[in-house]
Amino acid sequence: MVNSGGQLYTIEGVAAGLIMLLTAYLVVGATSVYTPGDAHISDMQLEVLGSDALAMMDTPPNSSVTESPLQQIIETDDGSRFRNLFLNYTNVSGYGPKHDIQFSASYTYEAPDTTITSPPINSSRNLTGGEHAVRVTKWVIVNKKLPPLSADPPENRAVLVEVHLWRD
């Protein structure tokens, strides 16, 4: 009769070795899983900040002001006011990390011939395509001639304000 006691130890040893190898692999692998996650986190923070900024710009300060700053900006094409307000909101200092944020903003409307046009509002730097930018949008109802040279009187239109923002 063959004594199988030695086999037991061998198998146990092999199994333990395998598990240890697997453990080591997992420990190493676990960290690499999260690297892309980190990038998403800063994207998420940037997106929240950008959409908050647009939402705040679209809120009139009290009930006697009927149009929000953002509506006024689009109606009067006041790009520098947009820039001031937006950077003011996004670079507001707290205890958290400093946000050196660049942006590029435009609004989109539909012309009478159903082409979609996006004239720029303002930008702190040109978007070259190399940046890791997030996009935030805000619907705004404006009373404006669209396109600006149209012969028709101004009417209520829905336009989509789009902002790309990124960190330096």
Binding site: A16, I19, T23, V27, A30
Partner: peptide, 21 residues
């Protein structure tokens, strides 16, 4: 016992890792 503990290690590390996220 050793195998058991070894197999728990990634779990512990995983907790540490996932908490930063």
């Amino acid at each position: 016992a050793f195998i058991w503990i070894a197999s728990m290690i990634p779990g512990i590390l995983l907790n540490l890792q996932s908490n930063t996220i």
